[in-house]
């Protein structure tokens, strides 16, 4: 396992370097070395590197890792490899918050981020509350509650889109929903990093208990685990991870669903051992998608298009692969 870690780390670092080079304004590796030495070829070089490229690159890596970890945690909590973090409606909730900010927030990016983050958390809390009032198996009621709340959120989204100005506001909304790191900057990185680090750290501390939780509530309880509290904390942390990413980049789908599978194929199924692999794979995958988003066509395309496309392809590969242990 250690070998895989270093290989992936190597791939990540290479991807970071490539990411720092490519884009509308090209910087070569040599130029980067000069910039880091404090001797840039031009002030434009340094400016683009430090203010745009580097923050964006790290933002993408962080986001990829966060989404991948959140997906892994959700799949473990729901004991189903076909679950994505959207099962409790966090994506839809964030969208509601973002659209409200676009329509009534006066164009402020900060308002957009804050609103989508808060609404994302709120939506999941609502879904969890609803599931408590439902009888029966806890996982089942969470899924049903998630469907209900996500559907409610979706109807609000549709209503808001309907009332939006088709010339000015609707395109902004649609672009946001597709997901993009186009506006990635240092401020965003500084805002969401603490949240992502905090949530990741908490999940890291709880990794053993989460693993035991997947054996079922009764067995977990018989081994001394406070099942309800652990589940609530884990969902909250995973949701924070997703909300943080979505608040700066819009809804990016498929990472939370696919990367956990990829990690299982590469590194086996043990969550405790795979923890770092999830973060690395997520970061690499999203970074490659972002690089492609910037380079495939002359104009940058929303990253969500690529993640959906590649994600669907990967899923087909997994389901058809004999080595993949299906449910």
């Amino acid at each position: 396992m250690k070998k895989k870690f270093w290989i992936l780390l190597g791939i990540l670092i290479s991807s970071i370097l490539i990411s720092a080079c490519v884009g509308r304004y090209h910087i070569s590796i040599v130029d980067i070395i000069e910039i880091l030495k404090g001797n840039p070829k031009s002030t434009m070089d340094a400016s683009v590197f430090y203010k745009i490229r580097l923050p964006r690159t790290f933002l993408v890596v962080l986001s990829g890792g966060a989404l991948a970890l959140a997906g892994t945690v959700y799949q473990m909590l729901f004991k189903n490899p076909l679950v994505s973090p959207d099962v409790l409606g966090v994506d839809k909730g964030c969208s509601v918050g973002a659209i409200l900010a676009i329509l009534y927030g006066g164009g402020s990016m900060a308002a957009l981020s804050a609103s989508s983050f808060l609404f994302g958390l709120l939506t999941v809390c609502l879904a969890l509350l609803l599931s408590r009032f439902m009888r029966g198996n806890s996982i089942y009621s969470m899924v049903i509650a998630g469907i209900v709340i996500a559907s409610l959120a979706n109807s609000i989204i549709m209503l808001l889109k309907y009332t939006a100005d088709p010339n000015r506001e609707l395109p902004v909304i649609e672009y946001w929903l597709m997901g993009s790191f186009n506006n990635g900057n240092m401020k965003q990185l500084q805002t969401i990093s603490p949240m992502i680090f905090a949530a990741t750290f908490i999940i890291y501390l709880l990794r053993w208990k989460l693993k035991v939780l997947t054996m079922g509530d009764e067995e977990a309880k018989s081994l001394g685990i406070s099942v309800g509290m652990l589940r609530a904390i884990a969902i909250l942390c995973a949701t924070m991870l997703v909300s943080a990413v979505v608040s700066v980049a819009g809804t990016i789908s498929w990472i939370g669903l696919i990367i956990p599978h990829l990690v299982r194929v590469i590194g086996g199924e043990d969550f405790v051992e795979n923890f770092s692999l999830s973060l690395l794979c997520g970061g690499i995958f999203l970074l490659i998608a972002d690089i492609l988003a910037r380079t495939l066509f002359t104009a940058e395309i929303p990253i969500g298009i690529l993640t959906s496309f590649i994600g669907a392809g990967f899923l087909v590969l997994f389901l058809c692969n004999k080595k993949f242990r299906s449910v």
Partner: peptide, 25 residues
């Protein structure tokens, strides 16, 4: 220590990892 009649289906656990969870309490 509890040994249930039916184990709830969970995904992807190796026997050695399963046995190790006895340490949890």
């Amino acid at each position: 220590a509890y040994i249930p009649q039916n184990s709830e289906l969970w995904i992807y656990e190796k026997v050695k990892d399963f046995i190790l969870t006895g340490s949890t309490p």
